[in-house]
């Protein structure tokens, strides 16, 4: 077995043998789908109460992804745990003694965890869309409509990327407490506030989660300064920066 494959296999064993990481992924799926279904059902029932403008820009695809606002937090938690599991316990020293080339350890861990997050993200995205449409009744759309498949695939991609962003940042912060304390409040509240308060809206639109979630929308309500793919690219730039910072810190610092 090649060296790279050995390290990948080892990282896969690390992820699957700790309960918390498995549970966070499962809850990302359940929370996103369940909340999406609930909100879809509520909007279906209350569709007639919506304003004319709201009805014109009604985006059934985007509505079925409403659960990602909470579900992404579980994805972020997964990303944080995969990395911070090494630090909270001193395991990082055993890991680096086994794989002393630090870039190798980082790359293997990110590759395995991101692949897993992407796979779960895709399943989550399709499940949220399909079950959400079921709840939307007459207001539903389908994968054949223009831009819908792009939005569904994009949402799966978003879920994987947000986990990868969290992993990169956690290599920098190194502690679970600090990582949760910074990232969860940021993505749960602060980012949304920045993106919706007029004073900071222009900057807030370029935050990783705001830019990335552009891809979830099929109908452009005019609230975005860029298109879905540009949004995803902006998010990718954030992710690349976080991973590069993590790699830089891991290389430089004592373990």
């Amino acid at each position: 077995m090649s060296h790279a494959r050995r390290v990948l296999l080892s990282e896969w064993t690390k992820i699957r043998t700790v309960r918390a990481t498995v549970w966070t992924l499962a809850s990302a799926l359940v929370v996103t789908v369940a909340l999406g279904m609930l909100i879809s059902a509520l909007l279906n029932n209350g569709f007639d109460d919506l304003s004319r403008e709201e009805r014109l820009t009604f985006d059934p695809t985007f509505i079925s992804f409403a659960g990602t606002s909470l579900g992404q937090l579980a994805m972020i938690a997964f990303g944080i745990l995969v990395v911070s599991n090494e630090y909270g316990t001193g395991m990082i020293r055993a890991s680096l003694a086994a794989v002393p080339v630090r870039g190798e350890l980082l790359a293997a861990k990110l590759a395995v965890a991101t692949a897993l997050a992407l796979a779960v993200g895709m399943v989550t995205s399709f499940a949220a869309f399909l079950l959400g449409q079921l709840m939307l009744g007459d207001h539903r759309t389908d994968l054949g409509q223009p831009g819908v498949l792009r939005a569904v695939l994009g949402t799966g991609l978003y879920m994987g990327l947000i986990a990868l962003f969290a992993m990169g940042l956690t290599w920098v912060l190194r502690s679970a407490l600090l990582s949760f304390g910074v990232q969860i409040p940021f993505f749960f509240m602060i980012s949304n506030i920045l993106a919706n308060v007029p004073a900071t809206e222009k900057v807030g639109d370029y935050l990783p989660d705001q830019a990335g979630s552009r891809v979830m929308a099929v109908i452009d309500d005019g609230g975005w300064p860029y298109g879905p793919w540009v949004g995803l690219l902006i998010m990718l730039a954030w992710v690349a920066a976080a991973v590069a910072a993590g790699w830089f810190v891991l290389r430089r610092r004592d373990a």
């Binding site: 316990t89 055993a94 086994a98």
Partner: peptide, 15 residues
């Protein structure tokens, strides 16, 4: 230098 939630066997296995 061990994750408390990973069994002794799996800890050694991943190494």
């Amino acid at each position: 230098a061990v994750h408390p939630g990973r069994t002794a066997f799996h800890h050694l296995l991943c190494l």
